[in-house]
Nucleic acid binder design. Structure first.
Length: 950
RNA sequence: GGGGCCAUAGCUCAAUUGGGAGAGCGCUGCUUUUGCAAGGCAGAGGUUAGGGGUUCGAUCCCCCUUGGCUCCA
């Protein structure tokens, strides 16, 4: 039986038993912070099991794509392990229980109409104390006792060993069904979990019956298909074997079941399937969390290829095979196949680069070992290379084997464990700790939110909470004297010091969906409360702030007033965010989806998926689209409607988000439809000005745009214009000539420096920079003018004028030094030699050269040494008010007589209050006292004379 | 969120207690050759990521910022 057929039959069977057929949840459920990937079919029904939501159905069946990395080491080595797999399941939420679950499982497995498995090949296990399940297997099904095995809690309880070891909470016994093939080991194909207890504390008597019992079953699709198809491993079933073969072909090896390469091909198959699905959901390989898992899976697969002799990207070539094998149930994979392949290829290329760099480091490590005559690669060394540069230990080991060196896996594991600990353990947040807010939740349930329609409303105080987190408590009333922070708010006052007020209804928006909370005032009879932030806690809206005046009491009437101007600015930024999202997708492609967002007053931060930096031309096009959409003034509307309807209308949905149903959909004209709970303008035209501040990377594959709207955008433009004005005035040119003038300034500085260091006259021909002429003086051209100038000097846009000032003064001082040098007369090796003295046949030059660079002094020394093979030269110069620089050189023949420039320069430097040193042929030193330079030069003459005599 | 590492010519990378910034490839010009992927000669190209500190002197030591790599959770 084909795998697709098995999947379909299973779902069909349970639909015939009154189950709702539910589509697979996403692989990466960002709505569920407790897991990185969907680990099992029941994950999307957590709230159903806990009775947290209103049930529209009490029986469900699904085929869920899952990813687990717990057994990653076994993938490819065993017949049945995967990271990515599909799980068939049927679920009962307080509906049917053990009897139906067992009977239907047996019917589906053995009935000719369904799977038709020979019943004699099946055995079951039950939990040792579960007489009920054992009884059903024996009486209803007619299984003999020897085919019903009773197992301990570590095998047949969920969670494993829960009764004795916890955790507390819902749990229950389970019953597993095993298939026994002609040969080989028996295989567990179906696990029926009967959640019927609530565990409270340690045994005994810690298992309390649940009022509402649930069924949660899981049948591994690949495993069951393998038994039905009679193949020795899951990887040989019809949906996986083509990928295995493609892997073997791409890697240029012959596939064999029982060889290292066979195992590698199977591992590649599993990992590329997992990566394809994850990247399809916009989870790109990256440095954290689920992104990191994808990266690790991908790199493991690539490493397998590398060990089969491949040296360039290949894994991406397997994406079509994955799509072909999985497109039956997941046709959407085909839509993103190209993008997925390119993401994989890019990451592969990165990793091959890492491997190449790793090979060098490994060779170096081998060199070190050879020096010390060691024959075993220390685990700590391998771990350090892995942690620092990502050098895979497997690579290290196989190279070590080629050199007949052993590899210390044990030490490696130990070092990695230590690294894990050094990197910080999981910070456990106390779950379910009860605070004062929980009792309010119980009494009030929710705060009515009025803020979509108004910013002012009358309400009643329902709760007042004071104190810091662990010691916070509800109070009946609070007066000025009791408020920890009355009067003027202290700058940087901690919000945790603040008072929290809960109302029955409010126009204040609590921070959510990236939009910040509102600020404003709560005013009542004789009191005033300033709200500095608003947060959501469950369905409650919490006003955080300080009592400024009077006494606030529970039950008091208040008028809640949101800071209108700020709220309007938030509206502008939030609507602009939607327009930007639209423009990004239009210009970059549909993959440019939101990854995160922060909306404050007239300022927005938007993270989205994109592999490479957005080019400046693209960025300009995006900004232009936004501005055009704003100018067009499309109406903004919102409505609450069923999720399915919103989807039909093409509302943008993000992978992994779980939306409430019904949802709030915000539309702008006919170009943007997003599900969003935030506040918006009524017309896009109200956004006003829009300016993109920056585009930058936040992690691999994710880019961030920061932009301004309304007043902040206008202010920003004004600052740009002011900067251009200041910078161009400084240089005495018109604004549009700024890039030219900057280029000329840079050129002049460079030429002066060269002249000073080479001892020549500067060639001050004005630099003819080729700069794109920018016409007009619009805000856009101002920005591009400043951008040109900023790029040339590698500073930010608003640092241009400052940098120009610094450069101008540097040019001035360079010019002064040059003038000083020229005033001191001609400078050359010959002119110095004319003034030289002779000491025992050796030419000695000791001179003060005002305004000369140390570098030039070195060159002069070289020239003199070339002309006079027997020479000793010491040159000095004064730099600034309090600095002397000395350079001394000794010709080669004198060095051979034991003279050293370093020894010569020492006492000279001491004479000007400094020190120094260097090599025998050339030494450099300095001091702080220019006034003593003449005396120091006397010291230089005496010292060299003594050295020559010795 | 935390640990480690890196940033030097267009590219890949050197530079030893802190003392003169280099190589290979690429580029430009000349030359050799029937021609060329080649050979020979010469040359250009650097705020050593940015900022601050220690020092007579910093690519090197310390601190901060930015960007990148890598591992752990």
């Amino acid at each position: 039986m084909k795998t697709d057929e098995l999947r379909e039959k299973y779902l069909e069977f349970f639909v015939s038993k009154g189950h709702r057929r539910v589509a697979s949840d996403v692989l990466v459920p960002t709505w569920d912070p407790s897991v990185l990937f969907t680990p099992a079919g029941m994950n999307q029904f957590k709230d159903h099991f806990l009775g947290k939501i209103k049930l529209e159905f009490t029986r469900a069946t699904s085929c869920q794509k899952c990813l687990r990395t717990g057994d990653i080491e076994n993938v490819g080595r065993t017949a049945y392990h995967h990271t990515f797999f599909e799980m068939l399941g049927n679920f009962s939420f307080g509906d049917y229980f053990k009897r139906e679950a067992i009977n239907w499982a047996w019917e589906f497995l053995t009935d000719k109409k369904w799977l038709g498995i020979d019943p004699s090949r099946l055995t079951v296990t039950v939990y040792k104390d579960d007489d009920e399940a054992a009884g059903i297997w024996a009486k209803d099904i007619g299984l003999k006792v020897d085919r019903i095995e009773r197992c301990d809690e570590d095998e047949n309880f969920w969670p494993a060993s829960a009764p004795s070891q916890g955790p507390d909470g819902v749990c229950g016994p389970c019953s597993e069904i095993y298939f026994h093939p002609d040969q080989g080991k028996s295989v567990e194909i179906w696990n029926l979990v009967f959640t019927q207890f609530n565990r409270v504390g340690d045994p005994p008597n810690n298992l309390r019956p649940l009022p509402s019992k649930n069924i949660d079953t899981g049948m591994g699709l690949e495993r069951t298909a393998a038994t039905l198809q009679g193949v020795p491993t899951n990887y040989h079933i019809d949906t996986l074997f083509p990928i295995v073969q493609a892997a073997a072909e791409v890697c240029g090896v012959k596939y064999e079941l029982d060889s290292d390469n066979g195992r590698r091909c199977r591992r590649i198959t599993d990992h590329v399937r997992a990566c394809t699905f994850a990247i399809h959901e916009n989870v790109y390989p990256g440095p954290q969390k689920e992104k990191y898992v994808v990266k690790r899976l991908l790199r493991r697969a690539v490493l397998d290829g590398h060990q089969m002799g491949l040296h360039e990207p290949f894994l991406h070539k397997l994406v079509p095979a994955v799509v072909a094998a999985m497109k039956g149930p997941y046709p959407e994979l085909a839509e993103t196949a190209k993008r997925v392949a390119s993401v994989i290829e890019k990451e592969e290329a990165n990793f091959f680069g890492t491997i190449d760099a790793g090979l060098n480091r490994i060779e170096r490590a081998f060199d070190d070992m050879r020096k010390d005559n060691r024959t075993r690669v220390e685990g700590a060394v391998a771990a350090e290379l892995y942690q620092t540069y990502g050098v895979p230990p497997e690579l290290f080991e196989s190279l070590a084997a080629e050199h007949n060196l052993a590899f210390d896996w044990e030490g490696y594991g130990k070092s990695m464990e230590e690294h894990g600990e050094a990197s910080g353990k999981v910070q456990h947040t106390v779950m379910g700790a009860k605070g004062p807010i929980d009792s309010l939740k119980h009494a009030l349930h929710s705060t009515e939110f009025l803020g979509y329609d108004t910013t002012v409303a009358d309400a009643v105080v329902k709760g007042i909470i004071t104190g810091k987190a662990p010691n916070d408590h509800l109070v009946d009333k609070l007066d000025e004297a009791m408020s920890a922070s009355r009067g003027v708010p202290a700058p940087g006052a901690q919000v945790t010091d603040a008072v929290r007020v809960i109302l029955d209804r409010t126009p204040f928006y609590g921070e959510s969906g990236g939009q910040v909370g509102d600020v404003g005032k709560l005013v009542g009879d004789g009191f005033e409360f300033e709200v500095i932030d608003t947060q959501k806690d469950g369905a409650l809206i919490v006003h955080i702030g300080h009592l400024r005046q009077g006494t606030i009491r529970e039950g008091a009437k208040v008028r809640a007033t949101v800071d209108d101007a700020r709220r309007d600015a938030i509206r502008r930024a939030h609507s602009a965010t939607h327009i930007l999202h639209y423009a990004l997708q239009k210009n970059l492609g549909s993959h440019a989806q939101q990854q995160g967002s922060k909306v404050t007053d007239d300022e927005l931060r938007f993270d989205f998926t994109n592999l490479s930096p957005v080019e400046s031309a693209q960025l300009a096009a995006i900004a232009k689209d936004v501005v055009e959409r704003v100018a067009a003034g499309a109406p903004v509307k919102w409505e609450t409607l069923p999720l399915a309807d919103a989807r039909k209308q093409g509302a943008m949905m993000l992978f992994g988000e779980k939306y409430p149903d019904p949802v709030r959909m915000v539309s702008m004209g006919d170009f943007s439809r997003e599900l969003c709970g935030g506040v918006h303008l009524t017309n896009t035209g109200e956004v006003g000005a829009f300016e993109i501040l920056s585009e930058e990377g936040v992690s691999a594959g994710t880019r961030r745009i920061i932009a301004l709207t309304g007043k902040k955008a206008t202010d920003y433009r004004a600052r740009i214009e002011a900067e251009v004005k200041r910078a161009s005035e400084k240089l005495g040119v018109a604004g549009y000539d700024l890039p030219h003038a900057v280029e000329a300034l840079i050129e002049k500085r460079r030429e002066l420096k060269r002249a000073l260091e080479a001892g020549v006259k500067p060639n001050l021909v004005a630099a003819q920079a080729t700069v794109k002429k920018v016409a007009g003086d619009t805000a856009e051209s101002m920005k591009s003018i400043l951008g040109e100038a900023a790029r040339r000097m590698s500073v930010g846009l608003l640092g241009v004028a400052e940098r120009i000032e610094a450069m101008a003064s540097e040019v001035e001082s360079l010019g002064q030094r040059l003038a000083q040098r020229e005033a001191a007369g001609p400078l050359s090796a010959d002119s110095l030699l004319e003034k030289a003295t002779t000491e025992g046949g050796v030419t000695v030059v000791v001179a003060d050269l005002p305004g000369v660079e140390p570098n030039l002094m070195r060159q002069l020394i070289d020239q003199i040494r070339q002309k006079q093979p027997l020479s000793a030269v010491l040159l000095a110069t004064t730099q600034g008010e309090d600095k002397v620089t000395l350079v001394a050189g000794i010709s080669k023949q004198l060095q051979e007589r034991g003279l050293s420039a370093g020894k010569w320069i020492g006492p000279v430097a001491a004479a000007v209050g400094g020190g120094g040193g260097g090599r025998p042929d050339l030494a450099q030193a300095g001091g702080k006292d220019p006034a003593k330079l003449p005396a120091a030069l006397e010291v230089a003459n005496r010292t060299i004379a003594e050295m020559l005599k010795a």
